[in-house]
Simulated scan of single mutants.
Amino acid sequence: MKKQISFSTQGHRADIGEMVIYRILPNRYAEAVGPFVFLDHLAPIKHSTDKPKMKEGTSAHPHRGIATLTYVLSGEGEHFDSRGNHAKVYSGGVQWMKAGNGIIHDETMNPDSQTGNPEMHGFQFWINLPSNIKKEDPEYLSINANEVPQMQLGEDNGWLKVIVGRYEELASKIPDYSKQYLYHIQLKEGKQFSMSTEKELEYAIFLPAHDLTINDTKFVAGDFIEFDREEGTIELTNTHEGDVDIILFGGEKYAEPILAQGPFVMNTMSEISEAYNDFHSGKYDKVVYVK
């Protein structure tokens, strides 16, 4: 039986400088999908040749209680934080940061210096942490494109990358603290892909650039689609002229209270107050920019 679709919606604009940003999650229908409580889509843009490259990001800012995950489809992402972590990833790379009990970070997004491609395109997710993990020290991990687990789909239908979690024999390097997954699927023109789902797990799809038929219903570029909680099959059919990229993510429902305010996601209002107090008192330190 094909899985039922609960709703679909589109994001709203939340631009930063020249970057065209669409806030996909939370939205008017859902505050989370599994542990994922936030998704921003950096729509594809070409960097203007007359503008300088970004050197110090959009501005340093704090986080607590979540893990941030930046997936760079095309471009060059650079990370700095107040624990001294610094790294660059290029097209296809991933940056994961466990904010834990508090950190300040900044990220830049520039054209890929390895390929010379001027296009910048990517995503940032926030993954909610269990209350005990929110108390731990921050951690950071960068994963280059060639380290992201990938498999070819049968009958030359396309490929699937595991950004978070597991799929068949593939497993991401990114730590997970509950059953969760984030897949990037590329489906070739005229091809189809089906996957079975588990009861009670939450599933959502985002279509960054092209239309796609999902369980016999056509959706358009920019659509966010969420499914019901019953077992079933998700069937993807590409009737578009060319390859289609699909972001599929979700997992176990977050079982604890969710209280989000600004850059902090905690379980109680007192924890939110503590997060702000610690930030304003300087406990998160300052970002060190590496030249």
Score class of each variant (00 low, 15 high):
residue 161 K to R: 11
residue 139 E to H: 13
residue 249 F to H: 06
residue 53 K to M: 14
residue 287 V to K: 01
residue 169 E to P: 07
residue 107 E to D: 05
residue 80 F to E: 05
residue 132 N to D: 12
residue 145 A to Y: 11
residue 85 N to A: 10
residue 105 H to Q: 06
residue 267 N to K: 07
residue 63 H to V: 12
residue 69 L to I: 05
residue 171 A to Q: 14
residue 88 K to V: 14
residue 223 D to G: 04
residue 257 P to S: 15
residue 282 G to R: 08
residue 232 G to H: 05
residue 156 D to A: 13
residue 281 S to H: 11
residue 39 L to V: 08
residue 75 G to P: 00
residue 143 I to S: 05
residue 223 D to W: 05
residue 169 E to A: 11
residue 54 M to I: 12
residue 31 E to W: 09
residue 265 V to K: 03
residue 260 A to C: 10
residue 132 N to I: 13
residue 8 S to A: 09
residue 173 K to L: 12
residue 130 P to C: 11
residue 10 Q to M: 12
residue 88 K to G: 09
residue 249 F to W: 06
residue 25 L to G: 02
residue 58 T to I: 15
residue 88 K to W: 12
residue 118 P to E: 03
residue 287 V to Y: 00
residue 76 E to A: 06
residue 225 I to A: 04
residue 120 M to R: 02
residue 176 D to P: 05
residue 16 I to N: 08
residue 291 K to H: 03
residue 63 H to A: 03
residue 15 D to P: 08
residue 263 P to I: 03
residue 179 K to N: 10
residue 259 L to Q: 15
residue 277 N to P: 01
residue 174 I to E: 00
residue 162 V to H: 06
residue 230 E to V: 09
residue 50 D to Y: 15
residue 8 S to P: 06
residue 104 I to D: 01
residue 69 L to N: 01
residue 220 V to H: 13
residue 213 T to G: 03
residue 158 G to L: 04
residue 174 I to C: 00
residue 281 S to L: 05
residue 163 I to G: 01
residue 63 H to Y: 09
residue 148 V to N: 03
residue 12 H to I: 12
residue 11 G to F: 02
residue 287 V to R: 00
residue 121 H to N: 08
residue 51 K to Q: 06
residue 148 V to E: 00
residue 291 K to T: 13
residue 32 A to C: 04
residue 99 A to L: 06
residue 8 S to T: 11
residue 151 M to E: 12
residue 147 E to I: 13
residue 24 I to V: 08
residue 29 Y to W: 15
residue 37 V to W: 07
residue 227 F to P: 00
residue 228 D to H: 05
residue 258 I to A: 03
residue 279 F to G: 02
residue 7 F to D: 09
residue 130 P to V: 07
residue 159 W to A: 01
residue 153 L to H: 08
residue 263 P to M: 03
residue 81 D to I: 03
residue 111 P to F: 14
residue 145 A to H: 12
residue 176 D to C: 15
residue 162 V to D: 04
residue 224 F to I: 08
residue 132 N to R: 14
residue 218 K to V: 13
residue 169 E to I: 14
residue 45 I to W: 10
residue 203 Y to T: 04
residue 160 L to Y: 03
residue 185 I to S: 06
residue 266 M to H: 09
residue 157 N to D: 06
residue 277 N to V: 15
residue 4 Q to C: 08
residue 56 E to R: 11
residue 99 A to I: 01
residue 158 G to I: 07
residue 42 L to V: 13
residue 214 I to Q: 01
residue 242 G to K: 06
residue 253 K to Y: 11
residue 9 T to K: 04
residue 264 F to Y: 15
residue 242 G to E: 09
residue 210 H to R: 14
residue 253 K to V: 02
residue 198 E to Y: 12
residue 269 M to V: 09
residue 287 V to E: 00
residue 91 S to W: 10
residue 100 G to K: 04
residue 272 I to S: 07
residue 112 D to G: 03
residue 107 E to F: 00
residue 264 F to H: 00
residue 172 S to D: 02
residue 195 M to D: 02
residue 277 N to D: 11
residue 55 K to F: 15
residue 154 G to I: 14
residue 177 Y to T: 11
residue 30 A to I: 15
residue 124 Q to A: 09
residue 40 D to A: 01
residue 52 P to S: 11
residue 226 E to Y: 07
residue 259 L to E: 07
residue 191 K to H: 15
residue 73 L to Y: 09
residue 38 F to L: 06
residue 47 H to C: 01
